[in-house]
Design a protein around this nucleic acid. Structure first.
Length: 426
RNA sequence: GGAGAGGUGGCUGAGUUGGUCGAAAGCGCUCGACUCGAAAUCGAGUGGCGGGGGUCAGACCUCGCCCGUGGGUUCGAAUCCCACCCUCUCCGCCA
């Protein structure tokens, strides 16, 4: 969330930030109004509490001296009731402010391209040769079942719509992709591998922003208060919640594989075929904790790690920088690598790398000290997919398909698949 | 799931006949003295959050809150009561 001080000191900057996202900025006035009320109430309450503390000591002294102190006790009864009433008003005011702040998105970085919609995203670069076929390339949702490596029918029998089942060499390749990606991040990019819980508390979900704003898109475990994580960002960024780190530890870079669960509540009818949009998919995620001044460079580093996976697999892609209207609520700046899908005939988002500034760190209270004994500051948090495994799987099928219906296994993946170099129809 | 023990400041750890306890002591850390330098020793300092004042910004001053979390009792709670969470040990169950 945003620092409440921003609303006091630079309300116009907040309004401008919200407008650049195409959001209504009237909440700003609401927050300012509530905050002023809260502070006024707080001041009078603290005065009461101060009196209460003072009189309490008087009573203590009187009792010790063997005197009654009945007048003071009577006065304290009144003060206590006033304090109780004030405290509960304060609590509800604070809750109101908190609720508002939790739903207000981050302010885009000045460097983030200004835009009205997805159409205003900016292409940063392209990499790789788009493969040319002397036959009509198929989409992965045809190729996969024909090869016997994907089965959507069985998946829907087992779990309903929007699930996938990987089979044989398909299952092996999915597993190999996870290993390959993690290996790359750990061995070449300085990440520490984490294998976290796949369920998370409301608190943890709130830290990274999935709750409350996107709660209807989350799966909830019926007999507990836990959520199925929609991304490993939740555990990786929640890892250091409520901690004060030593500046010397930074940057901290984590990577981890988890399945991701999303209700896709607002996506009815979209991407219904194939592996593009499922209720459950695998993803290797990266998260970085760093000092505020380092986050722009760390974002480039994060993006480079994601691109390295695509390059290692020989998949052609382009990098888009999202405009103010399209970046996620947490982000100040975002790059989306998009992979070319020959069968689908378009680029498809396969990663999203964001600098979230101190927005999530404030929600989760993740801080650090530059010097021992120094003032705690909020870290900057970044996260990015490296990569979405299901979509990578789809991209391999589509890019590496052959005229005979087989699919060549990218060389980099073969060591992770027992040397298998080609998937042929069973 | 059952039984028991416990959750105090960066760490260890005192503190339950409720009252100058935000909290002893030790360690760690910072600064200073001693030293050529270091160790040892000695001295001083050393939590977080929020409000107000102050400042260009700090420093600083002041008030309040925080002893797992949330309630309750009381003039007053780290200390008493209730609920919940977490950790440890044993038993049960189980991949």
């Amino acid at each position: 969330m945003l620092d409440i001080r921003l609303f006091r000191d630079q309300p116009d900057a907040v309004r401008e930030g919200l407008r650049s996202r195409g959001r209504d900025s009237s909440v700003v006035d609401e927050v300012i109004r509530l905050d002023a009320q809260r502070r006024e109430l707080l001041a009078s309450l603290e005065q009461l509490k101060s009196e209460s503390n003072r009189v309490s000591k008087e009573i203590s002294a009187l009792k010790k001296a063997g005197k009654s102190g009945d007048d003071q006790v009577e006065r304290m009864r009144q003060v206590r009731d006033e304090i109780k009433a004030g405290d509960s008003r304060l609590a509800s005011l604070s809750a109101e402010i908190e609720a508002a702040l939790l739903r207000i998105p981050n302010l885009p970085d000045p460097a983030c391209p200004r835009g009205e919609s997805e159409a205003d995203n900016v292409e940063v670069r392209r990499w790789g040769e788009i493969p040319r076929f002397d036959f009509e390339p198929k989409a992965h949702w045809d190729l996969g079942p024909e090869l016997g490596v994907l089965d959507f029918d069985v998946a829907s029998k087992l779990a309903g719509a929007r699930f996938a089942l990987f089979r044989g060499a398909g299952a092996a390749m999915e597993r190999a992709l996870i290993s390959y990606m993690i290996h790359l991040h750990v061995a070449h990019h300085g990440y520490t591998e984490i294998s976290p819980p796949f369920l998370a508390t409301r608190q943890a979900m709130q830290c990274t922003g999935q709750v409350p704003a996107m709660e209807e898109d989350m799966f909830r475990v019926a007999n507990s208060d836990l959520f199925l994580i929609p991304t490993a960002e939740v555990p990786l960024c929640g890892y250091h919640a409520n901690e004060i780190l030593d500046g010397g530890q930074l940057p901290i870079r984590y990577t981890g594989y988890t399945p991701c669960f999303r209700a896709e509540a607002g996506a009815a009818g979209r991407d219904t075929k194939g592996l593009i949009r499922r209720h459950q998919f695998d993803k290797v995620e990266m998260a970085v904790y760093c000092k505020p001044e380092d986050s722009p460079a760390e974002l480039q580093r994060l993006l480079a790690a994601a691109e390295d996976v695509l390059q290692g697999l020989g998949l052609p892609y382009r990098v888009m920088e999202l405009c103010t209207a399209d970046i996620g609520p947490n982000a100040v700046r975002t790059y989306d690598p998009e992979v070319w899908m020959p069968g689908m005939g378009r680029y498809v988002e396969i990663s999203s790398c964001s600098d979230c500034g101190d927005y999530q760190a404030r929600r989760g209270q993740v801080r650090f000290r530059r010097e021992p004994g120094g003032r705690p500051e909020f870290v900057h948090l970044l996260n990015g997919s490296g990569l979405a495994v299901g979509r990578t799987f789809a991209a391999i099928l589509e890019n590496y398909q052959q005229a005979d219906g087989s699919v060549v296994v990218p060389e980099a993946l073969r060591p992770f698949m027992g040397g298998l170099d080609r998937i042929t129809p069973a």
